[in-house]
């Protein structure tokens, strides 16, 4: 063990917190070592000085501090309780006040109250149904970007048709290329189509693009 390491441990030898093995090592080092003993004496002097409270140092008033702390805890507890009670009662009270003020609820006949509550329940249920996410899987995303993308079975493309195209003509084109419209129209009038998952995808796309009814065609990234 080096001199420096021993010197580093000496402070904690002085305050009595070394473990047994370290303590024994330090004691062995101290024996017949006047320099080390001087170092220890210096640490002991530091210890005595630090442990003592100086005349100019303020003294903490424990009793007053404890009173303050207990008051602070009680105040906080009371505030928490009040907030807890308020949060449960306030909602009900507010609803009751609102009903009284806007609907004269207290003066409304009982059958009318039942009818109003039923209607409100029905509206609420319909709202929930409308807001529930649709289970339809959509393997595309419209150009407006608002429809969530869902994985489709085959390759997809975005297509735009000439507005003058007749329905029968359009149906024939789609049948020939075995294409299915899976979505649209988007805000700008394009549709999403799904092509068969075979080796003819590029040829079908070329055929669609070449058709006079098609004014826009862009294959979607897989």
């Amino acid at each position: 063990m080096t001199e420096q390491r021993m010197d580093e441990l000496l402070a904690w030898y002085a305050n009595g917190t070394l473990d047994e093995a370290e303590r024994q090592e330090v004691e062995a080092w101290l024996e017949n070592n006047p320099d080390a003993q001087l170092q220890l004496a210096e640490y002991e002097f530091m210890q005595q000085s630090v442990a003592e409270l100086g005349d100019d140092e303020p003294v903490f008033n424990t009793e007053a501090g404890l009173d303050n702390l207990m008051t602070r805890i009680e105040t906080e507890e009371a505030a928490n309780e009040a907030v807890g009670q308020q949060s449960t009662s306030t909602m009900l009270e507010r609803l009751q006040n609102w009903l009284d003020e806007t609907l004269n609820w207290n003066r409304t006949p009982a059958f009318a109250r039942v009818a109003m509550v039923s209607q409100f329940g029905l509206v609420l249920a319909l709202g929930v149904v409308l807001l529930l996410p649709s289970e339809t899987n959509e393997g595309y995303e419209v150009l407006s970007g608002t429809t969530p993308a869902v994985i489709a079975a085959g390759p997809t493309a975005t297509i735009g048709f000439n507005v003058d195209t007749r329905l029968v003509e359009l149906q024939q084109l789609l049948r020939e290329q075995q294409v299915v419209i899976v979505g649209g129209p988007s805000a700008i009038g394009t549709y999403q189509i799904e092509l068969p998952k075979d080796d003819l995808v590029e040829a079908r796309l070329a055929a669609l693009k070449a058709h006079p009814a098609v004014i826009y065609l862009q294959r979607n990234e897989p």
Binding site: A11, W12, A14, N15, F45, M46, Q47, Q48, S49, V50, A51, E52, G54, D55
Partner: peptide
């Protein structure tokens, strides 16, 4: 002398003084 020692310790840097205080 101990008071002078405390004054000397007070002149140490924060990190040195902290270790001395926590130890002693």
């Amino acid at each position: 002398l101990r008071a002078l020692m405390r004054q000397s310790i007070a002149r140490l840097s924060d990190e040195h003084r902290e270790v001395v205080e926590l130890t002693f």
